[in-house]
Design a protein around this nucleic acid. Structure first.
Length: 493
RNA sequence: GCCGUCAUCGUCUAGCGGUUUAGGACAUCGCCCUCUCAAGGCGGAGAUCACGGGUUCAAAUCCCGUUGGCGGCGCCA
């Protein structure tokens, strides 16, 4: 058995998309599962849209996700390098193979103008035929070619696609898929400027780089017969093909910007963990027999297999991703969450915001709020009141707990007396505080809630928050009393 | 228009001819736990398995057709 070699071959024309990550992930998992190689190749032959910054963003995203490659940019293997197609073009890689096809007469120069080709397609479509190039330049004589070239016309190179019979793709996910050769046209394999087109460059590189499996989105399935013909024209062995179903947005259309975040780095900014993204994406188009939902990366590597990939398109569900993110956060220790949070700040503009925060208090606060955290971003609003110079009182909380007819009298007593008593409490531990509050309620013959709630709002400004007594313990006696007094002045004078 | 492809709860899916009154997860609803909010536990609701024909003793599962969605049809990848 040949060692498995797979690749992820993005074109750097934008951010790394959720769908792209899924493709990369499946290839990476398959490589890990099979103890094979995972290669990153940059398909930058679209000179108009490809940018260096996109390349960098893609690489950064891959690194962040931990989808590291065995070969590719920064990890070149002399045998296969370079891994950028435009660099390969400069090395004459594609020209060599175009020339080979030209001499074999399985490719030819075409001088038809873009407009002329467009006309042909329109005409064909009007006649209810598939729009294709009509082969005008298929049989130009040497003289005709010479003449055109002397006129300064730059030809494109077209592949002579067989026009009879069928070609059968044995897809690992979809089974046999038949294509009528007649429906395929003589597609361009090299543009007039000498740059190869995708369908050609892809085949040449996959073959030279000795890819054993091509695992990609099924938006490429119609390209596959064309690519197979090129393999055949060279006499190269075909790799195995596997086309995964696409990821759609909530309206059933292909996932795009209008469905919210699509760039994976945006999810980083939003406070998602890479484990959650990877786990979620693995579930989109792949499953285990027992429908397991939560996987560690190790489990994913162990269990992933192409034959358990589904063939129907999946809708991206942000709610499930969010749930999974919470699960992943809960599976980490509070200290790990703290470290992830600190690290996360680098990717946001919140670093200044927490500059004055006492990091030890932060750590303790995260312990208290741990299982409430769904994204790292949540931490900000979950614990910010610990660090506020001035408590930001929530209007409805104040109304309900301090000012309503039902609670104002008891709230005033609780706060007034607690301000004094808590100052003198010798033991300010959560346990002692709870005992204090319960004893106080008993003493005044009021419900415990009538003690707990005012205290909570007084120190935090809100009705929701961490366990009250643990929260007070973190504040300590001085800060607690200070906040209670402030609340008293503000709302009970 | 042509070609391809897909079709099970709102969503992701299990299911690969009988063990299915179709299982799990998210979301949703209720109860419990509880100092609030969560988390957790328990439970409910939710799918005539797109539709119509076959094949078979037996079909969500196999075949054909219809419909619908998606994808491709570039000197984009």
């Amino acid at each position: 058995m040949r060692k498995v070699r797979v690749r992820f071959a993005p074109s750097p024309t934008g951010d790394l998309h959720i769908g792209g990550v899924r493709t990369a992930l499946f290839n990476w998992l398959f490589a890990k599962n099979q103890k094979g190689d995972f290669v990153l190749r940059v398909e930058d032959t679209d000179e108009v849209r490809s940018t260096e910054s996109s390349t960098q963003v893609i690489i950064e995203a891959m690194n962040w996700l931990g989808l590291t490659w065995d070969e590719g940019p920064g990890k070149e293997l002399e045998k296969y390098a370079p891994y950028y197609q435009m660099q390969r073009k400069e090395h004459g890689v594609y020209q060599k193979y175009v020339d080979e096809l030209l001499t074999k007469d399985t490719a030819y120069k075409c001088f038809c103008s873009a407009q002329a080709v467009e006309e042909m397609r329109k005409k064909a479509q009007a006649n209810k035929l598939p729009p294709k190039y009509d082969g005008t330049c298929r049989n130009l004589t040497c003289e005709q070619i010479k003449q055109k070239e002397q006129q300064g016309l730059k030809p494109v190179i077209r592949f002579k696609t067989p026009q009879d019979g069928k070609i059968i793709l044995k897809d690992l996910i979809r089974g046999e898929v038949e294509f009528d050769n007649m429906l395929l046209d003589d597609f361009v394999i090299m543009k007039a400027n000498g740059v190869p087109t995708y369908n050609f460059a892809c085949v040449v590189d996959d073959s030279l780089m000795e890819m054993t499996h091509i695992l990609r989105g099924d938006d490429h399935i119609s390209n596959t017969p064309r690519q197979m013909h090129i393999y055949k024209a060279f006499g190269w062995t075909l790799p195995e093909f596997a086309h995964t179903a696409m990821i759609l947005g909530s309206d059933g259309a292909r996932l795009s910007k209008r469905h919210g975040h699509t760039s994976v780095l945006e999810y980083r900014t939003e406070g998602y963990l890479k484990e959650a993204i990877l786990n979620y994406l693995a579930l989109l188009g792949w499953s285990t027999q027992d429908s397991q939902q939560i996987f560690t990366l190790e489990e994913l590597k162990q269990k992933f297999s192409i034959d358990r990939c589904g063939s129907s398109a999946a809708t991206f569900d942000p709610a499930k991703l969010l749930w999974l993110n919470g699960e992943k956060i809960r599976s980490k220790t509070p200290l790990e969450v703290y470290e992830l949070f600190i690290d996360w700040l680098k990717y946001t503009d919140n670093e200044n915001l927490i500059r004055g925060w006492d990091k030890e208090v932060l750590k303790k606060a995260i312990v208290l709020e741990h299982d409430k955290i769904k994204t790292l971003k949540d931490i900000l609003s979950l614990v910010d009141f610990f660090f506020a110079e001035e408590v930001n009182y929530d209007g409805s909380a104040v109304e309900k707990v301090f000012l309503s007819e039902k609670s104002k009298d008891s709230a005033k007593i609780v706060l007034t007396e607690s301000a004094i008593r808590l100052k003198n409490l010798s033991n300010f531990s959560a346990e002692a505080l709870e005992k204090y509050a319960r004893d106080f309620a008993a003493e005044k013959n009021i419900k415990t809630g009538q003690v707990f709630h005012p205290l909570r709002v007084a120190v935090s400004g809100r009705t929701q928050g961490p366990s009250l007594f643990h929260m007070l313990e973190i504040f300590g006696s001085d800060e607690t009393v200070k906040r209670i007094k402030e609340a008293l002045i503000k709302f009970f004078n």
